[in-house]
Amino acid sequence: MLSASVLLTIAVSLLSVVSLLFLAQGARGTDWMTLWMDETWRDSLGITLYVVLASTCMSLLIGTWLARTVSFRQWPFVSRVLRLPMFVPHIAAAYLFLILFSGQSGGGWFDANEPHYVTVILTYVWKEVPFVFLMMGVTYEQVNQGYRDMARTLQLSPVQQFRHAELPFLIKPLLDTFWILTAFISFAYEVPSLLGVTYPKLLGVLAYDRLSTGLYLESSEPYAVALVWTVFVTGGVVVSYMATHRLRRRIERGVRR
């Protein structure tokens, strides 16, 4: 029974890899030069990188700071409230921000659908901060308080205390969370299609629109873009994990040389 369930789980996970092989097959016949020269795709790539970096970095910074503060100061009520956005599906969160910033309610600073994608970034930050908080909160619960006490005894500055007694333990969860958020936000449809603009669209929206619109049904371009973006993200994952491999192993063994 156990082996059958394990095999089934592995089969479902393998489906993900198989789907990438089919994606590569679907991308065959793409004129890569024409794709790269296409201004629509290039503008889309630029705005996607900006939205992904802004949303992910802000979520990581705010979420980590909150996990640290809530853990050290023992704020159980804040901890409970912070989990509330996790109950809201992304599409509903996008609509909450749409009505918050549409018309006069935006405070006159920006409108819901504007080309700088501020509301998209805000929606993602609001939705992803609790996820980062959850991931980092577990780490802060497990970190040995003795390291911080020692750093304080040695009279290190608060920044140095964080650098030596906390940051080494945060590297792995930070990397994990960074890439999970990047993969999730970078090629999504629901939030940017509701809160975005018609030009430039985010990569996921443009690719999905082209795939599902009759005009482009025979085109291999959406598959090619999806494939390139997947290779880019997984390449980033592999490189960043290889670059930090020795450091992470040393921390896992609890030995600092």
Partner: peptide, 15 residues
């Protein structure tokens, strides 16, 4: 977890 969902969905559509 590290593969964009919509991208693998395009491949799954073909499968």
């Amino acid at each position: 977890l590290f593969i964009p969902l919509l991208a693998s969905l395009f491949g799954m559509y073909l499968v």
